[in-house]
């Protein structure tokens, strides 16, 4: 729209999707990301659920769709700013200023800091990992314990830093159940003889193809599902991890020694987003994610007509949702800027 300037904060899947839409509608677009690469979390994953599509392929598709006219500023963080009627002023980390007519917040999420669940010993015991580290191992094509051995047994623990009032997190992070099942299957392919367990409270297989993946994990991949949350972990003298849980289905406490414990950590609002939201006058929900106007309708809108929200900065999302919301938020912004000027 005749050269109006829109800034997108965050070049993850949601930001990328939004940036592919707006230039074609005539906007001048600047996309800023504090990391040095495009793609946000997507750039860290290996294969995607539910169909195990390569993350690199999706990332390439998303970046290919971004027109050359979009100016991308990588390695730069938006640290503050203000919103007034019809205008947005942003401050970057080196003190630089940017003015825009519209803003898309696509700041995404951070993974829960697993060290906070002290009872699992992440950062203390050698062989306690997060699922993000497992993705990295898949990318490197090498699964091994901290002592460079091939693991003979692995346990996943669901809901670490999600659904946990002690950690101050009431919500479900939505993608970790299916990620745990997906990773268990991938591990099985690399480690045909290993014992692989998933310890869960509920398995939330809500998306298309998710429940089927779970069923395959049981039938074809011999993944053992235990309905009980791990209450504590300890390290044994050989560096393996001893876990305790209750098998709630037989009502018996259970002890198990595994070579690797993988924590399926939850999603949290991106670091600094609380402060940034406060400076911009954006509202947060009880869960500290940015709060849109509605939870069913108008899920991109804020109280400002020229500021919209996209992707997982509003709460846990799948890629599908992040991409869809990026595009929709761009359209919503276009509609309201159009209304404002006509």
């Amino acid at each position: 729209m005749d050269g109006k300037h829109i800034v997108i904060v965050g070049a993850g899947p949601a930001g990328l999707a939004a940036s592919s839409v707006l230039p074609r509608l005539g906007y001048r677009v600047t996309m800023i990301d504090r990391s040095n690469t495009l793609g946000g979390h997507l750039s860290k994953w290996y294969q995607l659920f539910p169909d195990r599509a390569a993350a690199t392929v999706l990332l390439e598709q998303l970046t290919d769709e971004v027109p050359d006219s979009v100016s991308t500023m990588l390695g730069r963080e938006v640290t503050g700013g203000s919103v007034s009627s019809g205008a947005v002023e942003l401050t970057l980390d080196h003190g630089e200023h940017l003015s825009a007519n519209g803003l898309i917040m696509a700041t995404g999420f951070d993974l829960f800091d697993a060290r906070r669940k002290e009872e699992y010993g992440y950062g203390i015991y050698d062989n306690v990992f997060t699922q993000a580290e497992i993705e990295e191992m898949f990318r490197q094509g090498q699964i091994e314990t901290r002592h460079h051995r091939k693991p003979r047994s692995i346990a996943f623990l669901h809901c670490v830093g999600s659904r946990d009032l002690k950690a101050g997190v009431a919500y479900c992070s939505k993608v970790c159940c299916v990620t745990g099942v997906k990773q268990a299957i991938e591990l099985r392919e690399l480690l045909p003889d290993a014992a692989i367990y998933n310890f869960y409270m509920d398995l939330r297989m809500f998306g298309r193809g998710f429940e089927e993946l779970y069923q395959q994990a049981q039938e074809r991949y011999n993944i053992r599902f235990v309905r009980g949350r791990i209450s504590e972990a300890a390290e044994s003298s050989d560096g393996s991890v001893i876990i305790k849980a209750e098998d709630t289905l037989t009502s018996r406490p259970l002890k198990l020694t595994v070579d690797m414990l993988v924590l399926l950590t939850g999603m949290q609002p991106a670091a600094g987003s609380l402060e940034l939201a406060a400076k911009l006058g954006l509202v947060l929900g009880d869960d500290s994610f940015l709060k849109p106007y509605g939870l069913t309708q108008q899920t991109f809108k804020t109280s400002y007509p020229h500021v919209v929200l996209a992707g997982s900065c509003t709460g846990p999302t799948t890629l599908t949702e992040a991409i869809l919301s990026g595009r929709s938020a761009a359209m919503a912004l276009h509609e309201s800027l159009f209304k404002l000027t006509n």
Partner: peptide, 10 residues
Amino acid sequence: MIAEGKRHIW
């Protein structure tokens, strides 16, 4: 065992 991790918690 990573001693630094414990110091972090202490």
